[in-house]
């Protein structure tokens, strides 16, 4: 006698109703057995998930309207995550080394474009994603201004936001040098020449950032470390403060 294959719901029940599954998903998770569309479980779904719990359990209704936030802050964060993931992928195939006869960085760029599986797609995603992030961060700032969302008690979070804007620009600008092509070298030359005009310690600033008097192999290594480690690290700290302050200052601003 042939045994009847288990139905989908049987399999689902067996998978969900065991010690391991229950230990992974906290009570109220929509993946846990017995989730019901009630106020209690809706609250637990947000509360008992490490990522969703960035949000409060309840949010002001007017903030849901797409035309209030346009999701710009959320999209900026999403792009930051996407850039981290694609950036880590690119790091596997890139060495920040340049110099006469050993143009490794540039050779790596050509390999990523030509022979690494999905290399070109991931590099494109990283490049376009970076431009998109600068853009969404600018738009997010404009949105916040026009809603007067920096007014008390949110003054300091606006300042944190301006710092995050500067960090975004620095992240993008340090990444601009890494392909080590003519475009990168001269765009960065234009940018860093301005730094030399900083009063009092301009030359010193330029020397430290370039690792010499002009852009060379030292600059590449320095900016690589800044781009993949130092600035993302600082950014994550400010992001944490930014998100935390949104909730401490009473959630999203408004209604107008």
């Amino acid at each position: 006698m042939a045994r009847k294959p288990p139905s989908f719901s049987d399999v689902k029940t067996n998978v969900q109703d065991n010690v391991i599954w229950k230990s992974i998903f906290r009570p109220g998770s929509i993946y846990r057995k017995g989730y019901r569309d009630t106020s209690r479980d809706r609250a637990l779904a947000a509360m008992n998930n490490v990522l969703y719990h960035l949000h409060p359990v309840k949010v002001k209704r007017h903030g849901l309207k797409l035309t209030y936030t346009y999701c710009l802050g959320g999209l900026s964060f999403f792009l930051f995550i996407l850039l981290t993931i694609t950036g880590i992928f690119l790091m596997f195939f890139y060495t920040p080394a340049a110099g006469a006869g050993t143009e490794i960085a540039y050779a790596n760029m050509r390999d990523i474009s030509a022979s690494v599986t999905f290399g070109n797609l991931v590099r494109n995603l990283h490049r376009w994603g970076a431009h998109a992030m600068v853009f969404t961060v600018f738009l997010h700032m404009a949105r916040v201004f026009y809603h007067g969302a920096y007014k008390p008690p949110r003054e300091f979070n606006w300042v944190v936001g301006v710092i995050l804007l500067l960090l975004t620009l620095l992240l993008s600008f340090t990444g601009y040098l890494l392909p080590w092509d003519q475009l990168a070298l001269w765009a960065v030359t234009v940018g860093t020449n301005m730094m030399g005009y900083t009063p009092v310690f301009g030359e010193q600033v330029q020397f430290v950032l370039l690792g010499g008097v002009s852009i060379g192999p030292n600059t590449l290594l320095r900016w690589y470390v800044l781009h993949v480690l130092f600035i993302p690290f600082v950014t994550v700290i400010f992001l944490a403060v930014h998100f935390w302050r949104i909730r401490k200052d009473g959630g999203i601003s408004g209604p107008l």
């Binding site: 359990v57 007017h62 797409l66 999701c71």
Partner: peptide
């Protein structure tokens, strides 16, 4: 006037993403 983050806000965010 507030609504639950799940599903209302998270759904909008997911679509935007």
């Amino acid at each position: 006037d507030k609504v639950y983050t799940w599903p209302h806000l998270l759904l909008v965010e997911f679509v935007a993403l």
